[in-house]
Design a protein around this nucleic acid. Structure first.
Lengths: 204, 204
DNA sequence: TCACAACATGCGCGTCACGCATATAGTGCG
DNA sequence: CGCACTATATGCGTGACGCGCATGTTGTGA
């Protein structure tokens, strides 16, 4: 839907961006969590078919490029929640939105494992997951009629949801796990969203 | 308490570590959130009275050095919760522990503002806050009798608490705010901890 | 078709993280 | 108390990186 709405410039730009990001993640996965230092900028750029300088026009670090897909995913969280029916209770809406967002295609386990189990990527990975909080908070505020600027509830809930997603991902990747990501997500989110009763005022 | 329990080596080591961390934060604050690039490794090392090479023996990046104090703070979260009376309900224990931990001395507003409003520090700042989650999850698991390895509840709650602390800090730093940090913390934590009824089983 | 804007690329500089070798200081034992 | 040992501090050299700047190339709009 967005491809047609963009002019050639924007489409090429997004294409190269995705090419770089994809190449970076692929090379990182090839080397594994312990060989990230071996993934050189030159390799990423070459694999993406661009110059090293161009790579730096899109990303200012390998970590950012590698985690870019997760950041994009997180950015869609607000929209996902807004697209839920307005009469749906907050907890159900959040759970449904998140599960839909994170299981439309089942996430790439190798990619997720890479960014979540590589120490050097920890900071960027956290940034990526945290990017969901802003839009999520606004969507929650809109749904609950609260003010995202004044009340703490929307931002705190958004942070809790983002944290639950992160923990769910970690659990999903744990060795010996057989559950589906959707099931784990539902359980994790149940720990945080229903707890906050909608009619309990936070203001004052 | 810990100073006497350490030999000279360990005490010197911690002293230099703190000297470097303190110098890094001070210099960063002097330049402000928009001048982080001007804080050179050489300056930090000189201000701390060590060689640049020694600085790198303690921290592998300026960001890590600057956010070190916050990371240390977060590491104490587990101990703070464990030191609460065992018969205290989880929600009250968490709130009391966090408030005590974060207001024993009122936190340095300039330092917190630095690490929370500087884009280049975002990753490290998130890592620093996230460091509370592990110990917190174990303390919560111990208190609720759940297994931190199997159940999602401890880890999810810990992540939610850490997120609430982070949001509370942001709110406390917001321009025009007059509330005490303790009050904001209490409100933020109230959005996540009481929600999870202790008698509601998460397993299955 | 043409002038303009946006993007890709090459080059060069300053900085950084870190391995290695060496000097120095703290520790434990005879 | 002095000595061997280990941990830490420092200097040096190297490879890689981020980014400003200038230039070529490719869409865009009149």
């Amino acid at each position: 839907m967005s491809d047609d709405a963009m002019d050639l410039r924007a489409r090429n730009k997004q294409a190269t961006r995705e090419a770089i990001s994809h190449a970076a993640l692929r090379l990182a996965i090839e080397q594994g969590p312990h060989g990230l230092a071996l993934v050189r900028v030159h390799d990423i750029a070459t694999a993406a078919g661009v110059s090293p300088r161009t790579y730096n026009n899109y990303f200012s670090s390998r970590e950012e490029a590698i985690c870019s897909f997760q950041a994009d995913q997180s950015r869609r969280a607000g929209k996902a929640l807004r697209s839920r029916p307005a009469d749906e209770p907050l907890d159900q809406a959040v759970i449904a939105a998140v599960i839909e967002l994170y299981t439309d295609p089942e996430p790439d386990k190798a990619g997720l494992r890479m960014i979540m189990s590589t120490p050097e990527l920890e900071g960027e990975a956290l940034k990526a997951f945290t990017m969901a909080e802003g839009p999520l908070a606004e969507a929650i505020a809109a749904r609950t009629g609260t003010d995202a600027g004044r009340d703490l509830f929307p931002a705190v809930t958004a942070a809790a949801v983002a944290g639950a997603i992160r923990v769910a991902g970690r659990h999903w990747l744990a060795p010996g796990n057989t559950e589906s990501f959707a099931a784990i997500l539902r359980r994790a989110l149940s720990c945080v969203v229903p707890a906050t009763s909608p009619e309990d005022p936070q203001d004052q």
